[in-house]
Protein backbone atom coordinates (compact mmCIF):
# COMPACT_ATOMS: atom_id res chain seq x y z
CA UNK A 1 0.00 0.00 0.00
CA UNK A 2 1.69 3.19 -1.17
CA UNK A 3 -1.19 5.48 -0.29
CA UNK A 4 -0.83 7.53 2.90
CA UNK A 5 -3.84 6.75 5.06
CA UNK A 6 -6.05 9.74 5.85
CA UNK A 7 -6.21 8.65 9.46
CA UNK A 8 -3.85 6.38 11.32
CA UNK A 9 -3.89 5.49 14.98
CA UNK A 10 -1.40 3.38 16.79
CA UNK A 11 -1.20 1.77 20.20
CA UNK A 12 -4.33 3.42 21.55
CA UNK A 13 -4.72 2.40 25.19
CA UNK A 14 -7.18 3.54 27.81
CA UNK A 15 -7.66 2.49 31.41
CA UNK A 16 -10.38 3.47 33.84
CA UNK A 17 -8.88 2.68 37.22
CA UNK A 18 -7.72 -0.92 37.01
CA UNK A 19 -9.88 -1.67 34.02
CA UNK A 20 -8.26 -1.63 30.59
CA UNK A 21 -11.04 -0.68 28.21
CA UNK A 22 -8.81 -0.22 25.17
CA UNK A 23 -5.62 -2.18 24.65
CA UNK A 24 -3.09 -1.22 22.09
CA UNK A 25 -5.59 -0.56 19.30
CA UNK A 26 -4.21 0.37 15.88
CA UNK A 27 -6.09 1.26 12.77
CA UNK A 28 -5.58 3.04 9.50
CA UNK A 29 -8.22 4.42 7.21
CA UNK A 30 -7.65 5.29 3.57
CA UNK A 31 -9.26 8.06 1.59
CA UNK A 32 -12.93 7.34 0.94
CA UNK A 33 -12.96 4.19 3.05
CA UNK A 34 -15.77 3.24 5.39
CA UNK A 35 -14.57 1.21 8.36
CA UNK A 36 -17.17 -0.29 10.58
CA UNK A 37 -16.50 -1.22 14.18
CA UNK A 38 -18.56 -4.10 15.53
CA UNK A 39 -18.47 -5.97 18.79
CA UNK A 40 -20.37 -6.50 22.00
CA UNK A 41 -21.57 -3.59 24.14
CA UNK A 42 -18.86 -2.44 26.48
CA UNK A 43 -16.23 -3.73 24.06
CA UNK A 44 -14.68 -0.29 23.71
CA UNK A 45 -16.12 1.06 20.45
CA UNK A 46 -17.18 4.43 21.85
CA UNK A 47 -13.94 4.74 23.79
CA UNK A 48 -11.91 4.04 20.66
CA UNK A 49 -13.85 6.59 18.58
CA UNK A 50 -13.55 9.25 21.28
CA UNK A 51 -9.86 8.58 21.77
CA UNK A 52 -9.38 9.29 18.08
CA UNK A 53 -10.36 12.95 18.50
CA UNK A 54 -9.17 13.06 22.12
CA UNK A 55 -12.59 13.69 23.64
CA UNK A 56 -11.38 10.89 25.86
CA UNK A 57 -7.72 11.26 26.74
CA UNK A 58 -5.92 8.00 26.02
CA UNK A 59 -3.20 6.71 28.34
CA UNK A 60 -1.08 5.88 25.34
CA UNK A 61 -1.42 6.05 21.58
CA UNK A 62 -0.54 8.21 18.63
CA UNK A 63 -2.64 9.67 15.83
CA UNK A 64 -1.73 10.87 12.35
CA UNK A 65 -4.01 12.85 10.06
CA UNK A 66 -2.83 12.80 6.44
CA UNK A 67 0.59 11.73 7.57
CA UNK A 68 0.97 14.44 10.16
CA UNK A 69 1.16 13.45 13.79
CA UNK A 70 -1.20 15.30 16.11
CA UNK A 71 0.40 16.84 19.18
CA UNK A 72 -2.64 16.97 21.40
CA UNK A 73 -0.94 18.90 24.18
CA UNK A 74 -0.88 21.97 21.94
CA UNK A 75 -4.37 23.39 22.33
CA UNK A 76 -4.39 25.14 18.97
CA UNK A 77 -3.33 21.99 17.14
CA UNK A 78 -5.93 19.97 19.02
CA UNK A 79 -8.79 22.35 18.25
CA UNK A 80 -7.86 22.53 14.58
CA UNK A 81 -7.58 18.77 14.40
CA UNK A 82 -11.01 18.29 15.95
CA UNK A 83 -12.55 20.55 13.32
CA UNK A 84 -11.28 18.13 10.71
CA UNK A 85 -13.02 15.17 12.33
CA UNK A 86 -16.80 15.23 12.25
CA UNK A 87 -18.28 13.40 15.20
CA UNK A 88 -21.73 11.84 15.36
CA UNK A 89 -23.02 10.59 18.70
CA UNK A 90 -25.53 7.93 19.51
CA UNK A 91 -27.86 10.38 21.27
CA UNK A 92 -27.27 13.26 18.83
CA UNK A 93 -26.07 15.79 21.40
CA UNK A 94 -27.69 18.70 19.62
CA UNK A 95 -27.54 22.05 21.35
CA UNK A 96 -31.03 22.26 22.85
CA UNK A 97 -31.25 26.04 22.94
CA UNK A 98 -30.51 26.49 19.24
CA UNK A 99 -32.60 25.89 16.13
CA UNK A 100 -31.48 23.30 13.60
CA UNK A 101 -29.99 26.16 11.58
CA UNK A 102 -28.06 27.60 14.50
CA UNK A 103 -26.85 24.19 15.59
CA UNK A 104 -25.06 24.14 12.26
CA UNK A 105 -23.95 27.79 12.11
CA UNK A 106 -22.52 28.02 15.61
CA UNK A 107 -19.39 26.04 14.76
CA UNK A 108 -18.92 27.99 11.54
CA UNK A 109 -19.22 31.36 13.27
CA UNK A 110 -17.56 30.66 16.62
CA UNK A 111 -14.88 28.22 15.53
CA UNK A 112 -14.21 28.95 11.88
CA UNK A 113 -14.88 32.68 12.25
CA UNK A 114 -17.20 32.78 9.25
CA UNK A 115 -19.55 35.74 8.79
CA UNK A 116 -23.14 35.15 9.93
CA UNK A 117 -24.47 35.37 6.38
CA UNK A 118 -21.93 32.94 4.90
CA UNK A 119 -22.51 30.55 7.77
CA UNK A 120 -26.24 30.71 7.21
CA UNK A 121 -25.91 29.97 3.50
CA UNK A 122 -23.64 27.04 4.17
CA UNK A 123 -25.85 25.68 6.93
CA UNK A 124 -28.96 25.88 4.75
CA UNK A 125 -27.10 24.00 2.03
CA UNK A 126 -25.96 21.27 4.42
CA UNK A 127 -29.43 20.92 5.95
CA UNK A 128 -30.95 20.63 2.49
CA UNK A 129 -28.46 17.89 1.68
CA UNK A 130 -29.77 15.78 4.56
CA UNK A 131 -33.37 16.50 3.59
CA UNK A 132 -34.26 19.02 6.30
CA UNK A 133 -35.01 22.06 4.20
CA UNK A 134 -38.40 22.54 5.84
CA UNK A 135 -37.17 22.16 9.40
CA UNK A 136 -34.32 24.64 9.67
CA UNK A 137 -36.01 26.89 12.20
CA UNK A 138 -37.20 24.12 14.49
CA UNK A 139 -35.63 23.44 17.87
CA UNK A 140 -34.26 19.97 18.71
CA UNK A 141 -37.22 19.27 20.98
CA UNK A 142 -39.50 19.76 17.97
CA UNK A 143 -37.70 17.21 15.79
CA UNK A 144 -37.95 13.43 15.54
CA UNK A 145 -34.92 11.30 16.42
CA UNK A 146 -34.09 10.71 12.77
CA UNK A 147 -34.30 14.43 12.05
CA UNK A 148 -32.10 15.23 15.04
CA UNK A 149 -29.46 12.81 13.89
CA UNK A 150 -29.55 14.32 10.40
CA UNK A 151 -29.10 17.79 11.91
CA UNK A 152 -26.08 16.50 13.78
CA UNK A 153 -24.69 15.08 10.53
CA UNK A 154 -25.25 18.44 8.82
CA UNK A 155 -23.55 20.17 11.74
CA UNK A 156 -20.49 17.95 11.35
CA UNK A 157 -20.40 18.16 7.54
CA UNK A 158 -20.59 21.95 7.57
CA UNK A 159 -17.12 22.03 9.14
CA UNK A 160 -15.74 20.31 5.99
CA UNK A 161 -14.22 17.38 7.87
CA UNK A 162 -11.58 15.05 6.42
CA UNK A 163 -13.01 12.13 8.34
CA UNK A 164 -16.34 11.39 9.97
CA UNK A 165 -16.54 9.38 13.18
CA UNK A 166 -19.98 7.90 13.81
CA UNK A 167 -20.77 6.21 17.10
CA UNK A 168 -23.84 4.00 16.71
CA UNK A 169 -25.71 6.74 14.85
CA UNK A 170 -28.92 4.73 14.63
CA UNK A 171 -29.03 3.00 18.00
CA UNK A 172 -31.23 5.58 19.70
CA UNK A 173 -33.74 5.68 16.85
CA UNK A 174 -37.13 4.07 16.46
CA UNK A 175 -36.89 1.28 13.86
CA UNK A 176 -38.87 3.18 11.23
CA UNK A 177 -36.45 6.12 11.41
CA UNK A 178 -33.25 4.14 11.01
CA UNK A 179 -33.28 3.97 7.25
CA UNK A 180 -33.47 7.75 6.77
CA UNK A 181 -30.20 8.12 8.64
CA UNK A 182 -28.53 5.12 7.00
CA UNK A 183 -29.46 6.53 3.60
CA UNK A 184 -27.66 9.77 4.43
CA UNK A 185 -24.58 7.80 5.49
CA UNK A 186 -24.67 5.74 2.30
CA UNK A 187 -24.82 8.94 0.27
CA UNK A 188 -21.81 10.27 2.12
CA UNK A 189 -19.93 7.13 1.31
CA UNK A 190 -20.93 7.36 -2.36
CA UNK A 191 -19.53 10.90 -2.37
CA UNK A 192 -16.20 9.65 -1.10
CA UNK A 193 -16.31 10.66 2.59
CA UNK A 194 -13.81 8.82 4.77
CA UNK A 195 -15.60 7.33 7.76
CA UNK A 196 -15.21 5.21 10.86
CA UNK A 197 -18.51 4.03 12.26
CA UNK A 198 -19.63 1.72 15.01
CA UNK A 199 -22.95 -0.03 14.63
CA UNK A 200 -24.99 -3.05 15.56
CA UNK A 201 -26.65 -2.88 12.18
CA UNK A 202 -25.04 -5.90 10.55
CA UNK A 203 -27.03 -5.76 7.31
CA UNK A 204 -25.78 -2.26 6.70
CA UNK A 205 -22.24 -3.16 7.72
CA UNK A 206 -22.13 -6.06 5.33
CA UNK A 207 -23.53 -4.08 2.44
CA UNK A 208 -21.52 -0.89 2.58
CA UNK A 209 -18.40 -1.35 4.73
CA UNK A 210 -15.02 -1.57 3.04
CA UNK A 211 -13.63 -3.19 6.10
CA UNK A 212 -14.98 -4.49 9.36
CA UNK A 213 -13.15 -4.24 12.65
CA UNK A 214 -14.19 -6.58 15.42
CA UNK A 215 -13.56 -5.20 18.89
CA UNK A 216 -14.05 -7.10 22.13
CA UNK A 217 -12.79 -6.33 25.64
CA UNK A 218 -10.79 -3.45 24.24
CA UNK A 219 -8.90 -5.66 21.79
CA UNK A 220 -9.12 -5.44 18.04
CA UNK A 221 -9.46 -9.15 17.41
CA UNK A 222 -9.99 -9.21 13.69
CA UNK A 223 -10.04 -6.91 10.68
CA UNK A 224 -11.30 -7.89 7.26
CA UNK A 225 -13.75 -7.45 4.42
CA UNK A 226 -17.42 -7.97 5.28
CA UNK A 227 -17.45 -11.31 3.48
CA UNK A 228 -14.48 -12.54 5.41
CA UNK A 229 -15.81 -11.41 8.79
CA UNK A 230 -19.36 -12.63 8.31
CA UNK A 231 -18.70 -15.83 6.36
CA UNK A 232 -15.16 -16.80 7.07
CA UNK A 233 -13.96 -15.31 10.34
CA UNK A 234 -10.67 -16.69 11.60
CA UNK A 235 -11.32 -15.79 15.19
CA UNK A 236 -13.76 -17.86 17.27
CA UNK A 237 -14.94 -14.81 19.16
CA UNK A 238 -15.84 -13.04 15.92
CA UNK A 239 -17.79 -16.03 14.70
CA UNK A 240 -19.59 -16.38 18.00
CA UNK A 241 -20.54 -12.68 17.99
CA UNK A 242 -21.75 -12.72 14.40
CA UNK A 243 -23.91 -15.78 14.86
CA UNK A 244 -25.42 -14.33 18.03
CA UNK A 245 -26.24 -11.09 16.26
CA UNK A 246 -27.76 -13.03 13.37
CA UNK A 247 -29.92 -14.91 15.83
CA UNK A 248 -31.06 -11.67 17.45
CA UNK A 249 -31.70 -9.55 14.39
CA UNK A 250 -32.36 -12.09 11.63
CA UNK A 251 -30.40 -12.38 8.41
CA UNK A 252 -27.56 -9.92 7.96
Amino acid sequence: MTQTPVLRIEGMTKRYGQKEVLRDASLSVNEGQLKILIGPSGGGKSTLLQCINFLVTPDAGRVWLKGEEIVRTQKKVLYEYRQKLGMIFQDFNLFDHLTALHNVTIGLVRVKGMSKQDARDKAVYELERVGLKDHISKYPAQLSGGQKQRVSIARALAMDPEVMLLDEPTSALDPELISEVLTVIENLRANGMTMVMSTHHMGFAREVADEIVFLEDGHILEVGTPDKIFLNAECDRTRAFCSKILELYGSA
Binding site: Q50, R82, Q83, N93, F95, G107
Partner: peptide, 11 residues
Protein backbone atom coordinates in the same frame (compact mmCIF):
# COMPACT_ATOMS: atom_id res chain seq x y z
CA UNK B 1 -23.08 15.22 25.75
CA UNK B 2 -23.58 18.79 24.57
CA UNK B 3 -20.26 19.86 26.02
CA UNK B 4 -18.65 16.92 24.25
CA UNK B 5 -20.34 17.86 20.98
CA UNK B 6 -19.09 21.44 21.32
CA UNK B 7 -15.53 20.28 21.87
CA UNK B 8 -15.85 17.87 18.97
CA UNK B 9 -16.55 20.89 16.75
CA UNK B 10 -13.20 22.32 17.79
CA UNK B 11 -14.47 24.73 20.45
Amino acid sequence: GQFKAARALGM
